[in-house]
Computed example of a mutant assay.
Amino acid sequence: MSASTPSWHLSLRERVLRNAGTAVGSVFTAVGIAGNILVMFIILRFPRMRTVPNVYLFCIAFSDLVILTVAPIIIHFYRVGRWIFGPGACEAESCIKFTSVFASFFLVSAFNVERYQVIMHPLETRHRQSLRKAALICLSMFLLALVANLPFCVTSIVVEAVVDGRNATVCRYFWPEWNSVPEHAQKARRLYLTSLGFLLPLCLNFTLYVLIIRKLRDQDAFRSAAGGQRGKESATAVTKMAAFVTATFIVCTGPYHMYNFISAVSDIHLSEFVGMWTKQLALGNSALDPIIYALMGTNFRECIKQLFCRRRPQAKGRPKGSRNEPDSGYAMVEIE
């Protein structure tokens, strides 16, 4: 198939697979955009939601939202089987997509480090925490992500390549001078992305979750921080949160990075459709983040009810069931 061959020349099987992938990616994109906008709006709308944990949550939602804004371009590329947007769009898509991908992983890691510090040293950490400090940390994560993305941002180029036995116009990432060794450049890019964007954050977050859960299961720590049943409830909530976050991260982004890793270190040929489906699935991580990080929180549910059900705010104090009481050492442990 040449670069000018229209999509209706694809076989029936290919059209079915591409249409199904388009549907899945479109659902993830629509749900993710709505969910992340809702999360950001609630944090800005309700003063009681402006807490240190929610600063991280706001930035994670923003990063996921940015990823989803370029998702239609990715979906369309796999829908028609070729790149039709030109070199400028290739560079812009690469800069936005990979910067946001790195930023999401870095922000989640920074947030979990903050939670780990709160668990291990609750009193000291609470005195050091501030909204400004959290915002500066998030900004530094975005800048770090931009630096990490430079190998993609400055090397994006539209080229003619053979994809599943056909010639097609694609957006690739390597220096023009590397045209004689494109396969080596592609393998290096895949290893770089998988190592920095998946393996390192996964190892760090998994280690932090294990340490957090072990600490919260320490009955003496429960009694000294929150006491009895309250401590057990906190332990259960954080355990579930850790399990959801870790499982979603692995299930949604793991196949894509496994596809990259296998393509980089072996001569096994994986079809374009494998890459297409793993990328569509990776969009699900951005779509599910609002549910995992926000909608499981007590205060978020209360704010959503107040926002959509026109509930009157309580006359005194915070919403019933809030875990943000100033005397609770575990107030910062859960997503608020």
Rank of each mutant, 00 (worst) to 15 (best):
G227C: 06
C203Q: 00
L208C: 13
Y78M: 10
V265D: 01
W175P: 06
N54I: 03
M1P: 09
V147I: 09
I212A: 07
Q280M: 13
S156F: 01
I335P: 10
T69P: 10
C303V: 00
M276H: 12
V108G: 09
V24T: 03
V66K: 10
A226N: 09
G228T: 02
T169H: 12
E336Y: 14
G197T: 02
G165N: 08
K133W: 14
I60Q: 08
Y173G: 00
E93G: 11
P151K: 00
L146Q: 10
Q314L: 14
E114H: 13
L139P: 14
F273Q: 13
E302S: 13
P290D: 05
V159E: 05
N205F: 00
V39C: 08
P122K: 08
V147N: 06
C138M: 06
E177T: 01
E336M: 13
F142N: 06
S100H: 05
M141K: 15
K215E: 06
I74R: 04
K187Y: 00
E183K: 11
A145Y: 03
G88R: 10
L199N: 02
T246W: 07
K133Y: 15
G86I: 01
K133N: 12
D289S: 14
A61N: 11
M40K: 08
S195T: 14
E325W: 13
A161N: 02
C153Y: 01
A134D: 15
V55F: 09
T51R: 09
H9D: 15
V31A: 10
T246A: 12
P319W: 11
G228V: 04
N299Q: 10
D289T: 15
C138T: 10
P72E: 00
N205E: 12
P47T: 06
R128L: 08
R50P: 03
H184D: 07
S234Q: 05
A243P: 02
L12E: 14
V39S: 06
S234D: 06
F142A: 12
I42G: 07
D218W: 02
T278F: 00
Y259G: 13
E114A: 14
R323N: 11
Y293V: 10
K316P: 01
N167I: 04
V108A: 11
A161Q: 05
T248P: 01
F273Y: 15
T125P: 11
A103S: 09
R13E: 15
I292W: 12
